[in-house]
């Protein structure tokens, strides 16, 4: 899932300093699971903002609303009235949901309430760790299920660097060396020799190096390619 964390209250308050009517919009999917932007967090942030406003000029009204998912039009549309009625929307979604708001409602003023950090998983209660870099050309097949792109500080594909020591990365003693994990696992499974296999260079153009990603599934399009899909006509504004 996408893992995010809330921005400092000071930063959020600064971004709405000139607005009288603010909507805190929570998202009920990934950021709910990582306790950053769900219903609870939206309610707490809205209360915090109201109290902070009350203690300064007192002129800011802050409401909150949480929808199932900010990154899909269908769910966003359910919040249309609240979004249109706000001077500014504080999005407690990842960067995708936040941008979806202004794509769907171009006249809306939106500021992000979260910093989107990574694709990860909760390794234990209250701890989230990165597991995927979204590189578009998965190599887990060659590394026995451990991602060197996201879990190696240098995203090395050819083994550990000189900074690996005692199974840890030189960047931090709390950071495991991904290649140490890979080698350990391959040894345990008895096929360390697979590391001797030669592979084609990784296709980095599928990652950020190739520009913004886009996938088109023609079998799922409502209209033939080249024609305007009904769902893309206009916006919810």
């Amino acid at each position: 899932m996408i893992v995010a964390e809330q921005k400092p209250l000071d930063e959020i308050m600064q971004s709405v300093s000139e607005d009288k009517n603010v909507l805190v919009l929570g998202c009920g999917t990934c950021v709910t699971v990582c306790f950053a932007g769900g219903e609870k967090e939206a309610e707490i942030l809205a209360a915090s903002m109201r109290m902070r406003s009350e203690m300064s000029d007192g002129g800011c009204t802050v409401d909150h609303l949480t929808i199932q998912r900010q990154c899909e039009w269908e769910y966003l549309d359910s919040a249309a009235d609240a979004i249109k009625g706000a001077d500014k929307v504080v999005s407690l979604a990842c960067g995708i949901g936040a941008q979806a708001i202004i794509e769907r409602f171009p006249e809306a003023q939106m500021v992000p309430g979260l910093n989107t950090r990574f694709y990860g998983l909760p390794t234990k209660q209250g701890v989230w760790e990165e597991r995927c870099g979204g590189c578009g050309d998965c190599v887990l097949e060659y590394t026995d299920g451990i991602c060197p792109v996201s879990r190696c500080s240098k995203s090395l594909l050819n083994g550990p660097c000189g900074g690996s020591h005692d199974g840890l990365c030189e960047v931090s003693d709390e950071m495991e060396c991904a290649w140490h994990l890979i080698v350990e696992r391959m040894e345990k499974l008895g096929h360390l020799d697979r590391l001797e296999e030669m592979h084609e260079p990784k296709n980095w153009s599928a990652a950020r190096d190739g520009g913004p990603g886009k996938i088109v599934r023609e079998d799922l399009l409502r209209e033939p390619p080249g024609e305007v899909d009904e769902g893309e006509e206009g916006t919810g504004s």
Binding site: P8, L9, D10, I44, S48, M51, R52, M55
Partner: peptide, 8 residues
Amino acid sequence: KLLDQVGL
């Protein structure tokens, strides 16, 4: 910590 941030 939240209350400190809010100013209460």
